[in-house]
Design a binder for these strands. Structure first.
Length: 424
RNA sequence: GGAGGGGUGGCAGAGUGGUCGAUUGCGGCGGUCUUGAAAACCGCUGACCCGCAAGGGUCCGUGGGUUCGAAUCCCACCCCCUCCGCCA
């Protein structure tokens, strides 16, 4: 959510900065609603002031025994109350409209973000590692997995529905090894680990921006709870409606959770394999930082996510998303893409964003620093995959495959696999 | 799920219709005192909205209702605690 005052004073600048991202958002309607809202507030409050004053005098008149005067004052207040009621109804309607508009306008990109309209305008910032050269025809994970008995697509469909998968035998163990390796590595690098609910309520999802605009991406239970699409939702909302002490910042959190996505708009995309499924595991990183340090914190988070790929020996490239390709809450986003032989290219495995104060304003996450400024200010929130475990598993299978169909276990994972060196 | 109790400012804890946004204690900030510190004493100390400002308004779990007026009364919902039941 953007600050209403900021938006009011910078309407055209925001319109320009958002470009196509704000398609369908009516800036002029906002301007007139906002103006009308402030006018009505003035109307209501001047009447409330009159009513409060009159009510006070009624109390005094009653005490003084002047009943007739008190009765006269009462009827006057009744009349004022009727006016207030009418104005209040108008104000409530406009408030709801303004709020709805504020909740559906995306974050404003940081100045350092390249301007563009699609993923074609994203900018690669670096590459690491060399894609493996095979002296045989490498297989895709959707062939390797079933052949090794580590991924079972048919049974995933049987147990749930399409786009659900089952991991078997060494697939399940490799998955768990990846989770533990990631958590241990991030833990050693300053991220505190949490275990959080896999379901979240509407307030929580409103706080991070999934609601109200993207409800169709979520699974909803009959209780009105939602399955979390990412642990970012929970880690960020841990501090919803809290004021953090400045000296405790930055805070760095991580968590492993399953993630659930409806993938409503993805029919036909990535239909083969386990690249795009309804449920996947992810280790998530979240930071709370001051406005002055959040951009540096983002660079650090990307480095931490990249470190996992380096340790695993997987080639990747890092790109900065252009203005047109960023998510709703982000002011700046880096995607890390891992090399996948089946794609003969790089595929997203992590996305790290600085959401600046966008989520903090929705969720009421502030910090204070008594010596530095009075009151409290909004923190900046950041989140990033560290990494998507399912896609990492795919990357390991495909990049470490041998001519005989076996998989070499990356060295850093062997301690988590009981010393096992090969999956066959 | 059943029965009972309770949700007030950073925390603790008063307040059952009228200057209560709210007594008091702790904590925090500033000051006096002190070589310094502690103690003691004095003062300050919630958030949000509209406004250039003066000022005004809202907020005592949430949402309704009664009333000229509600933290205080009524209704619904949410959450917490205790006991019982059930249960991984």
């Amino acid at each position: 959510m953007l600050d209403a005052r900021y938006l009011r004073d910078n309407l055209d600048a925001v319109r320009t900065a958002l470009g196509g991202r704000s398609a369908g958002w009516d800036f002029d309607r906002f301007a007139s609603l906002d103006e009308e809202r402030r006018r009505l507030i003035g109307e209501v409050e001047s009447r409330q002031a009159r009513r409060n004053e009159a009510s006070r005098s009624i109390g005094e008149l009653m005490k003084a025994g002047k009943r007739d005067e008190a009765e006269a004052a009462k009827s006057e207040v009744r009349a004022v109350n009727e006016e207030i009621e009418t104005l209040d109804a108008q104000l409530a309607a406009i408030d709801a409209d303004v709020r709805e508009m504020l909740l559906t306008i995306p974050n404003v990109p940081d100045e350092s973000v390249p301007v563009g309209t699609s993923e074609d305008d994203n900018v690669e910032v670096r590459r690491w590692g060399t894609p493996p050269a095979f002296d045989f025809e490498p297989k895709a994970h959707w062939d390797l997995g079933p052949e090794l008995g580590v991924i079972d697509f048919e049974r995933g469909v049987k147990l749930a529905k399409s786009r659900f998968i089952v991991l078997g035998r060494d697939g399940a163990r490799l998955n768990r090894a990846l989770i533990n390796f990631m958590l241990d590595t991030h833990g050693a690098r300053g991220y505190a680990e949490w275990a959080v609910p896999a379901m979240a309520n509407a307030d929580t999802l409103l706080g991070t921006g999934q609601l109200p605009k993207f409800e169709e991406d979520l699974f909803r239970t009959s209780e009105g709870l939602y399955l979390i699409p990412t642990a970012e939702v929970q880690l960020t909302n841990l501090h919803r409606d809290e004021v953090l002490e400045a000296e405790t910042l930055p805070r760095q959190y991580c968590a492993y959770t399953p993630c659930f996505r409806e993938e409503a708009g993805a029919a036909g995309r990535d239909t083969r394999g386990m690249i795009r499924v309804h449920q996947f595991d992810k280790v998530e990183l979240v930071k709370f930082a001051t406005p002055e340090t959040s951009m540096d914190a983002l660079e650090g988070m990307v480095t931490d996510a990249e470190f996992i790929l380096q340790q695993l020996g997987l080639a990747y490239r890092t790109i900065v998303l252009c203005t047109g390709d960023m998510g709703f809450s982000a002011a700046k986003t880096y995607d890390i893409e891992v090399w996948l032989p089946s794609y003969d290219g790089y595929k997203e495995i992590s996305s790290c964003s600085n959401c600046t104060d966008f989520q903090a304003r929705r969720a009421g996450i502030k910090y204070r620093s008594p010596g530095e400024f009075k009151g409290s200010r909004l923190v900046h929130t950041l989140n990033g995959s560290g990494l998507a475990v399912g896609r990492t598993l795919v990357a390991v299978l495909e990049n470490y495959q041998q001519a005989d169909g076996s998989i070499v276990v990356p060295e850093v994972l062997r301690p988590y696999m009981g010393g096992q060196e090969v999956i066959r």
